[in-house]
């Protein structure tokens, strides 16, 4: 049992760099929480005193929109860690977590987590390292996404071809930033298709003017006495206005 837990811990991005001894120590300190669909694992705003590692099943991370309706921010499954942020910064829970199906989560209490950090400075370091990696990853993609968004705004879609790779990887890579980007590119591709479609639909008009008819009609109007007088008066008026 403890070995199973240890194996789970090793799969998580946060603990994957720990030695087997450390993982073992951690595994000893976890307790298992069983969840039925709809069970609340943590509630937004609560004071946090533990983190969870999803062991089995899927949970949804939700918040409320302005109308009070549930808004799903993310879904988490086996191997993923939830709630560690609050342990590190001592803030309240930032979202509510609800089980989607029969699930199991490993709970690691704050003291055990803290203990681990105190006894193993290396753990703190590896946590910091994994955080900065994640941060760098996010920042890099945020920067790229900003860059791409600007290009879209300018109607330049050329970058899509370079991004096929990332979209494909999203199938296997569970990092949410990558999944978000994948959705982003699907959207961009659809927008571009629609835009191309619209462009193609635009029809061209051809204009023809019958120049001899134009000349004839002009002469008909301008050959009257009325017109001759008007033209002279208009000219006087323009000259007068120009002098003013």
């Amino acid at each position: 049992m403890s070995q199973d837990i240890q194996n789970y811990l090793k799969k998580t991005s946060l603990f994957k760099s720990l030695s087997d001894d450390m993982l073992n120590a951690l595994a000893q300190n976890t307790t298992t929480r069983k969840l039925a669909p709809g069970d609340v694992l943590m509630r937004k705003g609560e004071i946090a005193d533990s983190l969870f590692i999803i062991n089995e099943g899927w949970v949804k991370i939700v918040t409320e929109d302005k109308k009070g309706d549930e808004l799903i921010i993310n879904k988490c499954g086996p191997g993923e860690i939830i709630g560690e942020m609050a342990l590190l910064d001592s803030g309240p829970r930032s979202a509510t977590v609800i089980a989607i199906e029969n699930s199991e989560a490993l709970e690691l209490k704050q003291e055990a987590f803290q203990d681990l950090l105190d006894k193993n400075p290396n753990v703190s370091l590896s946590i910091i390292r994994s955080y900065s990696n994640r941060l760098r990853f996010s920042t890099k993609y945020i920067e790229r996404a900003i860059d791409w968004s600007q290009k879209i705004a300018e109607g330049d879609y050329s970058f899509i071809d370079q991004t096929q790779q990332i979209s494909k990887n999203a199938e296997t890579d569970d990092d949410k930033a990558t999944q978000l980007l994948s959705a982003f590119f699907t959207m961009v591709r659809r927008v571009k298709e629609r835009e191309d479609g619209l462009k193609q639909q635009l029809e061209q008009l051809t204009f023809e003017i019958d120049q001899s008819r134009r000349k004839q009609e002009f002469e008909e109007i301008t050959s009257t006495e009325f017109y001759a007088k008007l033209k002279e008066q208009a000219k006087n008026l323009r000259d007068k206005r120009a002098q003013q």
């Binding site: 134009r214 009609e217 002009f218 109007i221 301008t222 000219k235 323009r238």
Partner: peptide, 11 residues
């Protein structure tokens, strides 16, 4: 086209 010619003729 005729109106334009007239407008130009009337400055």
């Amino acid at each position: 086209s005729v109106t334009i010619d007239i407008a130009r003729s009337l400055d």
